[in-house]
Simulated assay, not measured.
Amino acid sequence: MSATDDRVTAAVLVIGDEILSGRTQDTNLRDIARYLGVIGIDLAEARTVPDVLGEIVDALNALRGRYDYVITTGGIGPTHDDITADAVAAAFEVELHEHPEIIAMMEARWGGELTPARRRMARVPVGGALVKNPVQGPPGFTIGNVFTLAGVPQIMRGMLEDVGPRMRGGRPTVSRTVRVDGSGEGVIAAPLEAVARAHPDMSLGSYPFFGPDGYGSNLVLRSRDPEALAGVVVELIAALKGAGIENVREVQVA
């Protein structure tokens, strides 16, 4: 769990052979990170695991004991390799049952044609609650501090809107970017390290760029304290210029 009361943490567990094989490009991690950042939750770790029951269970148990929340994506469809519900139930040591609300939704949509494959999507761990799906298909579910969402990006984003209000948010993290043009990381390393050491509670990262218009680095500073962050931006620019690096400016990043 979080080390301090004012920091709320989360992890993402991406499930699916198709992600690891490269056949499907994952965009859910990016969308979840952005969503959580707005409500003041730090995405502290992300893992990707195959459609193997034991590996999903092991990863889920490790993450749910370490962070305030865990969001899983993928593996709740109708096919034989959609085993996320089985894995979540195993992790919490409970049985699966066909949720009556999901069965009712399916009957309203398909009438009496509830095939075994469709019924697989109605399985929820005993004690779990539903996560609304405003797009199409059955809902996700939550149990303990775990939220199990669909892997299809559009559906996952819709489910997030129901997940967010159930989470305890924190103070949102604010970021500011200082751009250095025409100097490599070897040149900026010393002043950047000095500022970082002086402010250990603040995140400072260097992200180099190369292109037809030149090279350099974007120095990204993150903090929950906007006023302190503004002061460190000024300090960093001064430190860089004091080291003889003149082409430095703060930039706005969308």
Rank of each mutant, 00 (worst) to 15 (best):
G65M: 10
D26I: 03
R118Y: 01
M106A: 10
G54S: 15
G74E: 10
T48F: 12
L43G: 01
Q25E: 15
I41V: 15
M121L: 02
Y35P: 01
G74W: 14
D86H: 14
M105E: 09
V124L: 04
A85W: 00
L60W: 10
I41H: 01
T73Y: 14
A122Q: 00
A90D: 11
H97R: 15
I102M: 00
T84E: 13
R30S: 12
L53D: 07
A129Y: 01
V70G: 08
T24G: 07
L114I: 05
P78V: 04
T72Q: 11
R23P: 05
L114M: 08
V94N: 09
E101M: 03
M106V: 02
V70Y: 11
T73I: 12
A129S: 13
R120K: 15
I71R: 03
T84F: 12
T72A: 13
R34M: 06
M106R: 02
A104T: 02
P134S: 07
R23C: 03
E45W: 12
E95P: 04
T79D: 13
E93R: 15
V94K: 10
T79R: 13
A108F: 01
A87F: 11
P78Q: 13
A90T: 15
Y67Q: 03
E95L: 11
A85F: 02
D42E: 06
Y67V: 10
W110F: 15
G22T: 12
D51Y: 14
P100W: 04
L130D: 06
A33E: 04
P134N: 06
L63F: 11
E93I: 05
Y69Q: 04
R120Q: 05
T115L: 02
R66E: 12
D81F: 13
E95R: 15
P100C: 09
R120F: 02
N61L: 11
D26W: 13
E107A: 06
R30T: 14
N28L: 07
G127I: 10
P100E: 08
V124Q: 02
A62V: 12
I71T: 07
G111F: 01
R119G: 00
E45M: 11
P134L: 06
E98L: 10
R66N: 08
G77V: 01
Y67P: 07
I56A: 05
R118S: 03
A44M: 08
G112W: 01
L114K: 05
D82E: 13
V52W: 04
D82T: 04
A108P: 03
E45V: 09
D82W: 15
L36P: 02
Y69N: 02
N28I: 05
D58R: 15
A89G: 14
E113D: 15
I41T: 00
A129K: 03
I32V: 14
N61P: 07
A129E: 07
A108C: 04
L96S: 12
R118W: 02
Q25F: 13
G128V: 09
